[in-house]
Design a protein around this nucleic acid. Structure first.
Lengths: 134, 134
DNA sequence: TCGACGTACAACCATATGGTTGAGAATCTC
DNA sequence: GAGATTCTCAACCATATGGTTGTACGTCGA
């Protein structure tokens, strides 16, 4: 059923390894070759090369072959997709605020079943907050 | 080097499977038992139970055993951690704006090396935007 | 042109993941 | 107490993941 987003699968999987997160973090500062990406990591170049490929498959890294060097560049769009998915849960992060909103928005709601929380004014004010589940 | 956050590893890995994302999405509407979480999924109860455990290990689900039923509840704090990590890259999402800022902020920068982008006014205005890499 | 360099690729290994089925272990209901 | 319900656990399987080493290929520089 349901969403079934292979893209999100790939992005979240790519983010689920420290070495790859380190690579992304460094790529945020500028382009780097595969060798440069591998350098601070305590693993072989071949292993690092595999990690780069995982990032590439998730669309997070763009590779330009320049002679013998493979220059990698961050592509942030898939990260935005992941962040959009997470943003749906922003309303739950501060449970204190959430509880307050429950009291303020629906002070006399009789049903005890915890319903989908109202979209708060705070959340509505945020840009890109999806109205529907992504 | 580096960050090395097993928590982030666990959270991103938990999010890297559609079935688990569906579970979280449904838990956002209220508490559900393991059986209820498994119901819409095309897999055995045992398989779904494993997915619940993955979510639990990542801190995303809290379980309360009520008799023979295991009631699951969303815990959003780890999601907030993941979102905070992603928020670092917000500055790259709209590349059009980013390019504009490059021109506006450093019109005569001589070095060709792409430096860490300046934190834009737009990004600075956003709440929770970390100044340092998380 | 020759050697060093930067990577990829293949083969291999150990372990993790995601699924199944079958067998309990509690717990509720009658 | 007997049977149904809810869920975990163990065993098993296929495949994916993350690492290694060795080899090969294109490219740069002297």
């Amino acid at each position: 059923m349901v969403e079934d987003s292979p893209e999100l699968d790939a992005v979240f999987h790519a983010l689920a390894h420290d070495a790859r997160r380190v690579m992304l973090r460094r790529l945020a500062r500028g382009e780097l070759t595969v060798g440069q990406l591998a350098e601070p990591l305590r693993m072989s170049l071949a292993a690092a090369s595999k990690h780069v490929k995982v990032l590439e498959n998730a669309g997070l890294v763009e590779r330009t072959v320049m002679g013998r060097r493979h220059v990698c560049r961050l592509r942030s769009a898939p990260l935005a997709g992941a962040a959009a998915w997470l943003r749906f849960y922003e309303r739950f992060w501060d449970e204190r605020i959430d509880a307050l909103e429950r009291v303020l928005d629906r002070p006399h709601t009789p049903d005890a079943t915890p319903a989908r929380p109202q979209v708060s004014a705070k959340a509505s004010a945020r840009s890109h907050t999806p109205e529907e589940a992504p």
